[in-house]
Each structure stands twice: as structure tokens, then as C-alpha cells.
Design a protein around this nucleic acid. Structure first.
Lengths: 214, 214
DNA sequence: GTCTATATCGGGATAGAC
DNA sequence: GTCTATCCCGATATAGAC
């Protein structure tokens, strides 16, 4: 019988509520800028419960950070590991990544910031993720060659791709204000458009480059 | 005579040292993550001097932030305001921006973060900068038209441009590790290459798009 | 598991001597 | 202008009652 637990709120899962709240607040305010109280407020619970479940702030942050990595790595890896044709990979990357960022816009931000401050994390991260060296670069070069592009380091292509996808999210407040007069709705549409716009841009760039060199 | 000041270290300018140190530390650790002691250590001075010169942490941060804005705005504005041909604007933007970021790699980071946390700043910022509404968009559309591109919102072009330029800096630790096996030197070269690579990529993209639609 | 009360510490800020 | 000493508060963290 668990009828006696009815008074205890029987919250669907306090731990889960904490993780959700912490993820949200940490992402926006950063680790240092976030207090345990902030998280407790966001979760609607007592502050000391955070310690009960996660011992201390560091541990809680780590839990969030690991979680974030688990979500983002498979997506990034897709571009390098997949066996699909180049443009298909790029397209699916854009869709996946943009959808994820719509859900968690601060994610790249959060990631990059923490790694800047604490680069050690990167080492363990990579070993766990099994991305020890950068596989797939040679194969990408080959793919570019098949499209008639021989004079481009694939890493430039990767940087271009990721940069184009990420920017509207990390720079959102500024860009939305300056370029969209703070029209939220228009910006949402813009973000959605980029799922097609970015792959198209890349496709044209590679095609244009190809033609120019013949 | 100022011979009597010889004991006093006669520092070339304490205030300047503070600004330099604060700029560095704030950018890397963020406002919340930086303590006054951190800055004092970086500057090699006593902590209370920071208060003597800037009263409190907020004021010191504001001084840094304003300074950053003054540097970055003219560069960004250049893309929209200039009367040069489109590709020249893009090229000079890339060179200016990349050179600046080589000097202050955390700058976009720092900017975006602060604006995310404190969007109010944006308002005052824009009014000071005189960028009230987004001028230059129509003229950009015209320019694109001259290049045979009619089906592209110039804002996508802007987002692409800025994203491509910024990413290698904000994502540096991760990207350098994953794509360059942490080879610092190779990465510097890569960054330098992007001054040509990005404009070239854009040029080809627009050309490719143009041809495809004819 | 959840709460209240409390210990402890670090960081911001000021006063005042030099 | 620069330093030491000190105040104060906010935030982490723990102990212990329920």
C-alpha cells in the first residue's frame, strides 16, 4: 500500500524536476551565474533537496553537462561518420541540429563556454565518445572530389556548416533585434527556413566553386 | 620635478593595467565567474585598487563592455552601411573581423552571453550606436539582385557570413582538438586562410545559385 | 524525502593608516 | 594612490527535526 504517501505530494519525480530546472538555468546564466536557489525556484522545490539528490553544485552541473554531451555528440558525429552522400548528410545535419537548438537554444553556448573555462573536460569527453582522432576527413575529401572540388580543405566546409547553423541561436537576441525588429514570430520562421537555406547555400557554393575552376 | 614619485613604482598607468586585465578575465570567465581578486591578480595589483578606480564590479564591467562595443560595432555596421560593391564589403568584413578576433577571441562570446543574460543592454546600445532600425536591408536586396540572386533574404546571407566567421573562434578549443589534433600552429594558419575562404565560399554560393535559377 | 536552522566561507565593499 | 583591517552579505553545505 502506498496510500500513506498521498500527503507527500508524491511528485512524479523530484530528481527529474531538478534536472530539468538545472538544465534550463545553467544554460542561460552559466555555471557561475547560477545559484542553487535559482534552480530550486525554477523547480519549485526546497533548496536543500538539490543537495539531497546531487550532493553539491559541481556534481549537479556535471550531471547536466554529461547529459548535454550525450545529446549533441551523435548529431555532430553524423556529419563525419555517415555513409550517405555528402549533401544528404548536410541536409539531415541541419534539420536535426536546428530542431534540437529550437528546443535548447543555449546549448552550443553552454558547451563552448564551459570548455573554454575548463578545457580538461574535453579530453575525457572525447575518449568517452570514442572520437579519438578525427576520422572521416579523408573520406570527406574524396566526396568533395567527386563533386569536382579539389581545392578545399573539408575542415573549412565543416566550420562553415556549423557556423551557419549555430549563429542564429547564439546571437539570437542581438540578431533578432537588429534584423527583425524583435519580431519573435518572424524569427521563428527564419529559423525554420534555414533548414533549407543552409544546405542550399552550401550546395551552390560547391557547385559555383566547381564551375569556376574548370 | 617628479623625482619624488620614483618610489611609487610610477606604474605606466594602473588604470590601464586594470582595464587590460579585466578585459581578459571577464571575457574568459564571464562576469559572474570572475572575482575582483582574479582581476587584481591578473593585473598584479592590490584588490582594493579596483574599487578605488572603478568603485565597484558592475562599473568596471560596464567600462569593459562599452569598450568592446565601441570596437565591434563599426565593423559590423560596415557590412550594411558601406557603399562599396557587395563582395568587397564582404571581403573587408572578413579581414577586419578575423583580425580583431585573433586579438580578442572571446569577444563574440562575451557579447552574446551578456546580452542573453541582460537583454536590456541591447536597447541602450542600439540607440547610442544610432542603428535604430535595420537600414541597408533594401539596398542589400538590390545588390543581390544585381548578382542575379532574387530568391534570397539578405538576412540569411548575413547570418551565414557572421556564423562562418565567428565559429572557429567561439568553438575553438573543441574544433581545434577534434579537427586539428590540437595543433595550435595549424589552427592559426586555418584562421588566416578563412579570410579568403569565407568570401570565396559566399561568392561561389551566390554564383552557383544564380546559375541554377537560369 | 522534505523541511528548518545553522555553520562556514568567499567575495564585494568601505574606512582609515601610510 | 596604495595598502591593511574590517564589515557585511549571499551562497554553499550540513545537521537534525519531522
Amino acid at each position: 500500500m502506498e496510500s500513506n504517501s498521498s500527503q507527500h505530494q508524491k511528485e512524479p519525480d523530484t530528481e527529474k524536476k531538478i534536472l530539468t530546472a538545472a538544465g534550463k538555468v545553467f544554460m542561460i546564466k552559466g555555471k557561475a551565474g547560477t545559484s542553487m536557489q535559482d534552480i530550486a525556484d525554477e523547480a519549485g522545490i526546497n533548496r536543500t533537496l538539490l543537495h539531497y539528490y546531487f550532493r553539491n553544485k559541481d556534481k549537479l552541473f556535471d550531471a547536466i553537462f554529461d547529459d548535454v554531451l550525450k545529446k549533441i555528440f551523435p548529431i555532430v558525429a553524423k556529419v563525419f561518420m555517415d555513409k550517405n552522400p555528402l549533401f544528404e548528410k548536410i541536409e539531415s545535419f541541419c534539420i536535426l541540429y536546428i530542431d534540437m537548438l529550437k528546443d535548447k537554444p543555449f546549448l552550443p553556448f553552454f558547451l563552448f563556454q564551459e570548455i573554454y573555462i575548463n578545457p580538461k573536460r574535453l579530453v575525457g569527453m572525447i575518449k568517452e565518445g570514442g572520437l579519438d582522432t578525427f576520422v572521416g576527413r579523408e573520406s570527406m575529401k574524396k566526396e568533395l572530389h567527386q563533386h569536382g572540388v579539389d581545392d578545399m580543405d573539408p575542415r573549412h566546409l565543416i566550420a562553415n556548416l556549423i557556423g551557419m547553423v549555430i549563429f542564429p541561436f547564439v546571437g539570437r537576441p542581438m540578431f533578432q533585434k537588429l534584423a527583425f525588429n524583435d519580431d519573435q514570430e518572424a524569427y521563428e520562421i527564419f529559423l525554420e527556413q534555414r533548414k533549407k537555406e543552409v544546405p542550399e547555400f552550401i550546395k551552390c557554393a560547391l557547385k559555383g566553386r566547381n564551375i569556376s575552376s574548370t
